[in-house]
Design a protein around this nucleic acid. Structure first.
Lengths: 194, 194
DNA sequence: GTCTATAGTATGATAGAC
DNA sequence: GTCTATCATACTATAGAC
């Protein structure tokens, strides 16, 4: 048996720091605009050290996005177990808003950067194309073009608005509340009481 | 007087072709993901030929975005001359939707890619920060957080949804109609009659 | 106005020492 | 687990011929 080292809590230390740093830089400069050199510098190590933890840059991109994607997958699965359509929409909406508020700037990068889409193609397919699934849930599986457009505007608008500098001054709680409200209005859900 | 050449219609030919090609590639791979080599190859010329027309890649980025930015500036100026707030919102909304429908994929790149934001900083400041101005118009200069969030979601959602693959099947006319409808609902404008 | 040729730098990635 | 040293490749950009 491998003897447990005294400071076992530090296991995977640099790997986690690496992911946190990459996340921050991706949010600032985009994925394509972030080089391994930048990540290494910000971390205080060399590029080679980065390569010890990840074989390729795409692998870093995937690892950074993975927790959010898994969370989206969970939201989608949970939503399908709900009976009423209104409850489904609310669940998906709340889930996306929560994710966006928790990450802010990052959501923008991963919803739009074309370079990211390519890097995440594999992961996205494994999860069964979460994005499409969520959009379907938001428009009720309806093929009505108006509902589909509204669902897309809601998903993308919420994701991007969260990282918009113009809304930096809002607290997490304000942002969460107003994003929900905007989403509900857009998707024709009745106004909630406070 | 300079004698008009027989095929005068071809003046500025390669420069225009270059911009059109760059626009297409930017939409496909993003700005950071598009190299000068790619532009040159697609055009059937060498990199040096590209450098004859533009000193830097940023200059190409600016030139590609310029018409759209000028159009947005015009929309903002026109809107401020309108008296009723509702009319202002409608004008801005219609202007943005028109631009998005006309370009589809490109709107997404220029509203989100962090690399683009940096390249366009100068141009954006010359135009007096059009984005902020338009958002202000959409929320009525109101500092109410809910209105500001709704305006951001509308602007970004409309811009991004236009380039979304999930809506590729819609005709320009359908897309225009439903984007307008979504924007109006989001901003609390009454439903229009057909 | 477009080309060839090339400079200079940064990139993603690898091998092997410590 | 981190390092130095290095690879091939791609990039932005320049100089000068045609």
């Amino acid at each position: 048996m491998t003897p447990v080292p005294p400071a076992a809590a530090r296991a995977g230390d640099t790997r986690d720091r690496l992911l946190a740093t990459a996340l921050e830089l991706f949010a600032q400069h985009g994925v394509e605009g972030t080089s391994l050199q930048m990540i290494a510098d910000a971390l205080g190590v060399t590029k080679a050290a980065v390569y010890y933890h990840f074989k390729t840059k795409d692998e870093i991109t995937e690892a950074v996005a993975e927790p959010a994607l898994r969370q989206l997958g969970t939201i989608a699965r949970e939503a399908t177990t709900l009976r009423r359509r209104g409850a489904q929409v609310d669940h998906v909406l709340a889930g996306i808003v929560e994710l966006v508020v928790g990450h802010r700037a990052l959501a923008a990068v991963f919803s739009s950067d074309p370079g990211v889409a390519r890097a995440l193609e594999r992961t996205l397919h494994e999860e069964g194309n979460v994005k499409e699934c969520l959009t379907d849930l938001l428009c009720g599986g309806d093929s009505d073009p108006a509902a589909k457009v509204a669902a897309h505007v809601a998903m993308l608008g919420i994701a991007l608005a969260g990282g918009s500098p113009g809304l930096d001054s809002l607290t997490d709680d304000e942002l969460r509340r107003h994003l929900m409200e905007a989403g509900r209005r857009l998707l024709g859900r009745p106004r909630r009481r406070d």
